[in-house]
Design a protein around this nucleic acid. Structure first.
Length: 433
RNA sequence: GCGAUUGUGGCGAAGUGGUUAACGCACCGGGUUGUGGUCUCGGCAUUCGUGGGUUCGAACCCCAUCAGUCGCCCCA
C-alpha cells in the first residue's frame, strides 16, 4: 500500500474544484459590491496569538489546536480560525493609521485547521470565507455585515436559513451576568451534567447552550443576559433589531446563544440551516462584534465585527439542493485522428484552434474512429474535427457538429493562414450553407 | 478525547472458515478494416485497508493498527 492522506484532510478533485471555483468567484463578486478587500495572512502563526486572541479556556485552544514546535523551537499553530491572524496583520502593518479609510473591511477565503474528530461538514482542514470590519462601533455595521452574510446565501438561492442573534453586552455586563448565572445555577449543581458541572465556575455562559436535556430544562428559567445589558449595549441591540426589521430580514433572538470564541461582545449571530439531511452541524455562518480584540493583540482601541462561513457546509447545502453548477470549461472541439500519419498534424490543428479561443481536446491513443466519436460525445464536445489520411492528402479537415450531425470540409490552409475574429461563428455560418 | 459502525477491482456490490473471489457500471479489444445509439463476443482482483495471530485451511475467527461514516463533546 502507498500513502494515504492524513485524517480529516481533503483532496479536491476536478469535480469538486469546479464547484469551489464557482462558489469562490461568485462570493468575490458580492464581496466587492460591499467593498470588502481581500487579505491573505499566513496559515500558521505563533501559538500565543491564538491562545490570547481566541481565549485560553476555549475548546478551540485547549483541545483543538494543531500546534507544534518548529526547528527554531518556536511554538507555532496552524490557524484554527481567521480573525486572530487578520487582527495581528492589521496591527502589525499599522492599518489603523489615518491614511486608511474607516471602517476598514477585509475578507479571506482560506483553509483553517482544527485537531478534532472528523465527520460530515467538519474536517481537520476546512475552509472558511470570513470578513472583518475594523473601526466602526456603529450598529449599522453589525447590520450591514449580517446582511452581507445573508446575501451570500441568497445569491446561491439557498433557502431554509435561520438568522439567530443575541447580545453579550460589554465586559462589565458579562461580569455581573456571570455571577448572576452562577448564583442561579448553584442550587442545581448536583443535577447538572458532568460537562456543565465543570463549566459552572470556569465558563458558566457555556452551560447555557448545553445540549443535555436536563440542563436545557434548568437553563430555561435562568436569568437572561438581555436583562443585564447597560444602556449603551441595550440601545445598540435595539438599533440592530430595528434595522434588520426595516430591511425585512427575519431573525430569532436566542438569549442562550454564546459563541465558542471568547473575544465577542454585544452583537453575535449565527446562520443555521434547517436542511433535514445535514447531520448535526447546522451552523453555516457565525460571527459578531469584538471591540476589545485589537487592543488585546497590541493595537489601539479599535472596534471590530466579523463572521466566518464554513465553505464545505455551503457547498454541501448547494449539493443537497441539487444546485446546477455551471460548467466553466465546456469543450468546443475534439480532434479525431485516423492513422499514425495524422498524429503530428493533429497537434498543429489543436494549437491553431486553441489560439483562436477554442477549448480543444484530441485523440492520443490512436483508437478506432467509432471509439473516438464516443469519447467526443461523452465529453460533450460541440464539434468533432476529423483528420484522416484522406483529409491529410487533400489538405482539409472534416468538421461535424455533434448536436445536428451536419458536416463540412474545410481547407487547413484557410484555418491556419487566415485571421479569425470568431472561429465558431464562421464554422456555424459554413454549416448553414 | 469518548461511543457505534464499516473497509472486497477505477466505482457500486455479493460472498461470513474448504480447491478457480458472483454480478452490475465504467474501461479496453473484436463482430462492424473512417463517424456518436442498440445488440453481441471477449478482456479486466494470484487477492479481500495494513500488520500480526488462530487453523490442515482465513476475505470470512481473534488482536493490533490505519482510514471512512454516524453520534457525543465542540464548532464553520
Amino acid at each position: 500500500m502507498g500513502y494515504q492522506k492524513l485524517k480529516g484532510t481533503p483532496d479536491f478533485l476536478p469535480e469538486d474544484t469546479n464547484k469551489w471555483q464557482f462558489v469562490e468567484s461568485k462570493s468575490r463578486e458580492l464581496l466587492s459590491r460591499y467593498q470588502f478587500k481581500e487579505i491573505r495572512t499566513p496559515i500558521f502563526e505563533q501559538f500565543e496569538l491564538f491562545a490570547r486572541g481566541v481565549g485560553e479556556t476555549s475548546d478551540i485552544v485547549s483541545k483543538e489546536m494543531y500546534d507544534f514546535y518548529d526547528k527554531g523551537e518556536r511554538h507555532v499553530a496552524l490557524r484554527p480560525e481567521g480573525t486572530a491572524g487578520v487582527v495581528r496583520s492589521y496591527v502589525e502593518n499599522k492599518l489603523y493609521g489615518p491614511e486608511h479609510q474607516k471602517p476598514t473591511k477585509f475578507y479571506y477565503i482560506a483553509p483553517m485547521f482544527r485537531y478534532e474528530r472528523p465527520q460530515k461538514g467538519r474536517m481537520r482542514q476546512f475552509h472558511q470565507l470570513g470578513v472583518e470590519v475594523f473601526g466602526s462601533q456603529n450598529p449599522e455595521t453589525d447590520v450591514e455585515t449580517m446582511v452581507l452574510a445573508m446575501d451570500l446565501f441568497k445569491s446561491f438561492q439557498i433557502k431554509n436559513l435561520k438568522l439567530v442573534i443575541n447580545s453579550l453586552g460589554d465586559v462589565e455586563t458579562r461580569k455581573v451576568y456571570r455571577q448572576a448565572l452562577i448564583d442561579y445555577l448553584e442550587p442545581f449543581k448536583e443535577e447538572l451534567s458532568k460537562d456543565s458541572k465543570e463549566r459552572l465556575y470556569k465558563n458558566p455562559l457555556r452551560v447555557l447552550d448545553s445540549k443535555d436535556k436536563n440542563d436545557k430544562k434548568i437553563v430555561q428559567s435562568a436569568p437572561s443576559i438581555l436583562d443585564y445589558l447597560n444602556d449603551q449595549s441595550s440601545k445598540h441591540f435595539e438599533t440592530v433589531k430595528a434595522s434588520l426589521e426595516a430591511l425585512d430580514i427575519k431573525y430569532v433572538i436566542d438569549s442562550n446563544m454564546v459563541r465558542g470564541l471568547d473575544y465577542y461582545n454585544d452583537t453575535i449571530f449565527e446562520i443555521m440551516t434547517e436542511d433535514p439531511n445535514f447531520g448535526s452541524n447546522t451552523t453555516v455562518c457565525a460571527g459578531g462584534r469584538y471591540d476589545n480584540l485589537v487592543e488585546e493583540v497590541g493595537g489601539p482601541e479599535t472596534a471590530g465585527f466579523g463572521f466566518g462561513v464554513g465553505l464545505e457546509r455551503l457547498v454541501m447545502l448547494l449539493e443537497n439542493a441539487q444546485f446546477e453548477f455551471p460548467v466553466i470549461d465546456a469543450l468546443d472541439a475534439f480532434i479525431v485522428t485516423i492513422g499514425e500519419s495524422t498524429n503530428k498534424e493533429a497537434t498543429k490543428l489543436a494549437h491553431v484552434l486553441r489560439k483562436n479561443g477554442m477549448n480543444v481536446e484530441r485523440e492520443f491513443l490512436n483508437r478506432k474512429p467509432a471509439k473516438q466519436f464516443k469519447t467526443a460525445d461523452k465529453l460533450n464536445a460541440q464539434y468533432v474535427f476529423t483528420l484522416g489520411e484522406t483529409e491529410l492528402a487533400e489538405g482539409t479537415v472534416n468538421i461535424k457538429k455533434l448536436s445536428t450531425g451536419e458536416q463540412i470540409k474545410l481547407a487547413l490552409s484557410e484555418l491556419y493562414n487566415e485571421n479569425h475574429e470568431d472561429l465558431i461563428a464562421e464554422i456555424e455560418s459554413r454549416l448553414k450553407k
